[in-house]
Amino acid sequence: MGIFLKLSWFFKEQKKSYLLGIFFLTLVAILNIIPPKIIGSVVDSIQQHQMNTQKLVLYLFALVIIGIGQYLFRYFWRSYIWGSSALLEKTIRTRLVTHFATMDETFYQKYRIGDLMAHATNDITAVQQVAGIGILTFADSIITGVSTIIAMMFFVNWRLTLIAIIPLPLLAILSRTL
């Protein structure tokens, strides 16, 4: 969490981009819930001998529209989140090059240029990944987890869902310990 606090200046600066990215990520998570429900309806209709061509075309059309929506929303969240993380990388690299340009000759005698280049490449890439994949993983795990639990409560069985989530606090404690 320390790195997120150190980068808070950037997250505040790019708040709109990250919020839009998380918004589109949420839409993708919601759309991910719908196809299994549609497929379940198709199977139920076939099993109950109520499937006809019109229903099948409607279900297929819905799946295609959802697929297109997922594609578009994924494009947008990737543009906003990855675009912001690339901007952070560019900003840090620019600051680092400017800093290196102001350093005197003794600095470069004290530190090897290869080490400085390795830090500039590897460390900045790691920070960029925190601002990209780190935010994505954090937001996606919460959004997908919550939307899945809600969908299970409404579409499957709320009692079964409550029983299924009982081990989650134990898993959180064990993963924190590990």
Rank of each mutant, 00 (worst) to 15 (best):
L27Y: 03
L27N: 01
V28R: 00
I30A: 09
L31Y: 00
N32S: 05
I33A: 08
I33H: 00
I33P: 00
I34P: 00
I34M: 02
P35H: 01
P35S: 03
P36D: 08
K37P: 03
I38D: 05
I39F: 07
I39K: 03
I39Y: 08
G40I: 02
G40P: 02
S41M: 15
V43Y: 11
V43F: 12
S45E: 08
S45I: 05
Q47P: 01
Q47Y: 11
Q48E: 04
H49F: 09
Q50A: 15
Q50T: 12
M51Y: 07
M51N: 07
N52C: 03
Q54H: 13
Q54W: 06
K55N: 08
K55L: 10
V57Q: 13
Y59P: 02
Y59I: 06
Y59W: 09
L60Y: 10
F61M: 15
A62F: 08
V64T: 01
I65C: 08
I65F: 01
I65P: 00
I66K: 04
I68T: 05
I68F: 04
G69N: 00
G69F: 00
Q70V: 09
Y71D: 02
L72E: 01
R74V: 06
Y75N: 07
Y75P: 05
F76I: 09
W77K: 00
R78F: 00
R78I: 00
Y80H: 05
Y80V: 01
I81F: 10
I81W: 01
I81C: 06
I81H: 06
S84C: 07
A86Q: 09
E89R: 13
T91D: 13
T91K: 13
I92R: 08
I92F: 15
R93W: 06
R93P: 04
R93I: 10
R93V: 13
T94S: 14
T94H: 14
L96A: 15
L96I: 15
L96P: 05
V97L: 12
T98H: 15
T98W: 12
T98M: 12
H99R: 12
H99K: 15
F100A: 02
F100W: 08
A101N: 10
A101H: 07
T102R: 06
T102A: 12
T102L: 07
D104S: 06
T106C: 02
T106L: 09
T106K: 09
F107V: 09
Q109Y: 14
Q109T: 14
Q109L: 14
K110T: 04
I113F: 12
I113R: 13
I113N: 11
I113Q: 11
G114Y: 06
G114P: 09
G114F: 10
D115Q: 12
D115N: 12
L116T: 02
L116K: 03
